[in-house]
Design a protein around this nucleic acid. Structure first.
Lengths: 221, 221
DNA sequence: TATCATTTTTACCGTTTGGTCAAATCTCTT
DNA sequence: AAGAGATTTGACCAAACGGTAAAAATGATA
């Protein structure tokens, strides 16, 4: 069997990739993202992924040694995308502006990368077998860091008292919902299969919810 | 093969079930809920479900004619549970009280039935192949009805202007998140696998978010 | 306790699936 | 144009899977 890493490349080092390698790996990952996000890990078959990548199954396995490796490659790419919006929260900014723009970034991420969002959701639902470590270390660390910032704002009286980490959970869930549960959203709103026109209204709703006051003050008598 | 519906029972009619039938069907559904909610439809195998039900696979198939039928039976049971909290919203009540108690019911539902919640999430993520019809008809109808109530409150100035259906989405996503993404929640909070102690804080957060004012008013200069 | 329907088991089947192997083809460099 | 390495293919395999058939065992009932 021909090895992608050849004699003049030490094991573990990444040799410069061929044009064909680059193209085909990209094609495979794109096809796999489509299939995994739609069918889940177990529902996705190598035949289907290979078909979507316009490639024979053995050829696909020439680039990735097995199904799991493709899945892990996708998840690894995904994690940076997932963290990016959170990383941008600025301790020096105004609470409302920072939270508002974080929500907008997360919502935009849902709109632009729904398949990635569903891939992530599938992985978490399955008990995070591949990214459990990431959640416990990298994500937890970043959340702790950002939660400290939020807590600072609370201490300064610029943010209502609440558990900052649960505030983040609320932002994650509401924004990701529009990608992960898009079928339900569309069915309830009576929209066509491909229609994602609900994102504008979603943005308004989340603005009202997180930045405005939702329920009017109780009026006496 | 012995038929469960025998000669003296018209086709389609449900004959009185044997004690053994009742026990075993219950055992199977419980086992299947465990496996489906954890592994998804394709990840769940009949062998595993049968094993969890302490039963041989052919014996399991004596009660349900195939895998899909078990899945559908579970989903059908689930839908009533899913709708129940929404049904209880009372048009005559106070907006804050009604929304608050709806959130509490949904959150309690997440806490009490996490496996059912994950089963539902898996089904939606997969594109709702089995319950698409339910979403478009029964759920949509109920949502439209309740959205009208919320819109009435908005018109009366008792609820901040927003799309009522998106408000419901926000409630669904935030409450269900604690069941569907429990692994992530626990990892971020640094809790042990079985620990669900975060629900109290979650309830406070959602109260603040939906009923209180989250971000403090901007102070000039 | 004999009888009949219900329940369970054993043995099995066809298909799908993830994955392998070696030969054939293509591509790039010299 | 030739050689070496990279890529692709077709044929194949073992295991897992959903499901079946028929006999054996059990339970209810008269």
């Amino acid at each position: 069997m021909a090895q992608i890493s050849t004699a003049d490349t030490p094991v573990g080092a990444t040799r410069t990739k061929t044009r064909i390698q680059q193209e085909n790996e990209k094609k495979i990952l794109l096809a796999a993202l489509e299939v995994f996000s739609e069918k889940g890990f177990h529902g996705a078959t190598l035949d289907r992924i290979a078909g979507a990548a316009e490639m024979s199954k053995p050829n696909l396995l020439y680039y990735f040694k097995n199904k799991e490796e493709i899945h892990i490659a996708l998840l690894t790419d995904l994690l940076d995308v997932w963290l990016a919006p959170l990383r941008e929260i600025n301790p020096q900014g105004e609470p409302a502006a920072e939270i508002g723009s974080y929500i907008r970034r997360k919502l935009e991420s849902s709109r632009a990368f729904p398949r990635e969002s569903r891939l992530f959701a599938n992985e978490i639902l399955a008990g995070a077998p591949h990214i459990g470590d990431f959640l416990q270390t990298e994500l937890k660390q970043l959340v702790d860091e950002k939660a400290t910032i939020l807590q600072g704002w609370i201490n300064d009286g610029r943010l209502t008292a609440c558990d900052p980490r649960h505030l983040l959970f609320a932002i994650w869930s509401t924004t990701q919902h529009y990608a992960d549960f898009s079928v339900q959203v569309r069915h309830v709103l009576g929209l066509q299969p491909g229609d994602v026109s609900y994102y504008d209204e979603a943005a308004r709703m989340l603005d009202t919810l997180f930045l405005g006051r939702l329920v009017a003050r109780r009026t006496k008598g």
